[in-house]
Simulated assay, not measured.
Amino acid sequence: MSRLPDLEAWAIFAKLAEIGSFTGTAAELGISVATVSKAIHRLEQRVGATLLNRTSRRVMLTELGNHLARNATDMLVNAEHMETEAKSQTSTLAGVIRIAVPMSFGFRHVAPLLPDLLKKYEGLSIDLHLDDSIVDLIGGRFDLALRIANLADSSLRVRRICNVRRLLVGSPEYFQKHGRPEHPNDLVHHDCLGYVYLPTPGVWRFIHEQSGETVSVVPSGRLRANNGDALTASLCAGLGIAVQPEFTIWKELEAGALEAVMLDWSLPHLTLNAVMPPGTLRPARVMLVTDFLVEELRKALWAYYKYHKDE
């Protein structure tokens, strides 16, 4: 397997050819004269020829050295341009940001925030990906994702935004007809609408707020969906009850179209998180959008709805 080019040595050689002095090159690059000398020696060993003749006062390039110096200078200039462009891309508030967001949450709470952001920063572009499944941030080249879950430890960078409470809800008409469940075991007599991306979609786990009693039930019903909003119409039509996060149904609760029941029993809370790929250095535009979304979503009205109890 061939070795990679000694790019550092070629860069030092290009600077030496420009300045014409080992001492001057070392001072220009902030390295020692010995480091410059060793770099030139490595190159001569690699190419198998002398690249320069050194006297007590000056450096003279050989014919081969003079030819290679032009290529080395082009390489150094291109590398400097590449670094300059990269710094510009990471320091300016312009460019494309790819964001992955759960579908219902994205429609209801992220998309309405974007107009103000895009108006304020005209060079910014947002590629918003709406999907309730968990996307691969690295494979999908996403700069940022919002995830509603209790996240396991990983190499991803996580910023916690707020808790997400889940409620057991149904319409007043449904409860008039079928009664209000008071204990999780009562749910066996109810039509339970299912959301397939719950942490445990086949089991609903409840804990009593006072006694600490835990009860697990297996819900059954005539409707399952991979999006929480898809259940709302059937809930409001009195076709069943469902476990829904506050951000999905808080307006229906406020309007009286839905009611929360069994409030002395809670389901495990989830957390709204901003998740980014590994690493600590991020373009300024990514940090800008992340900070904006975290700040705005922490002020969301649904997070302070009357059914939400203080943590």
Rank of each mutant, 00 (worst) to 15 (best):
N66A: 14
N66E: 10
H67T: 15
H67C: 01
H67R: 08
L68M: 12
A69T: 01
N71P: 00
A72C: 00
L76Y: 00
L76P: 00
A79I: 05
A79T: 03
H81C: 00
K87G: 12
S88V: 06
S88R: 14
Q89H: 11
T92P: 06
A94M: 11
A94D: 05
G95Q: 10
G95V: 10
A100F: 00
P102V: 01
S104A: 13
S104K: 01
S104Q: 09
G106Q: 02
G106S: 05
R108S: 11
V110D: 08
A111G: 06
P112Y: 12
P115I: 13
P115L: 09
P115A: 08
D116P: 05
D116M: 13
L117A: 10
K120W: 03
Y121R: 11
E122I: 08
L124M: 14
S125G: 03
I126M: 03
D127C: 00
H129Y: 15
H129A: 04
H129C: 02
D131N: 03
D131S: 09
D132H: 01
I134T: 10
V135I: 15
D136V: 03
L137H: 09
G139N: 07
G140L: 00
R141T: 08
L144K: 03
L144R: 02
L144W: 03
A145T: 04
R147E: 14
N150I: 12
L151C: 02
A152K: 12
D153L: 04
S154H: 02
S154L: 02
L156C: 01
L156H: 07
R157G: 00
V158H: 01
R159Q: 13
R159K: 06
R159W: 07
R160P: 01
I161P: 01
I161D: 08
I161G: 04
C162I: 03
N163E: 14
R165G: 05
R166G: 08
L167H: 12
L167I: 02
V169T: 11
G170M: 07
G170F: 07
G170R: 08
S171I: 12
Y174E: 14
Y174P: 07
F175M: 14
Q176A: 15
K177A: 15
K177N: 08
H178Q: 14
E182N: 14
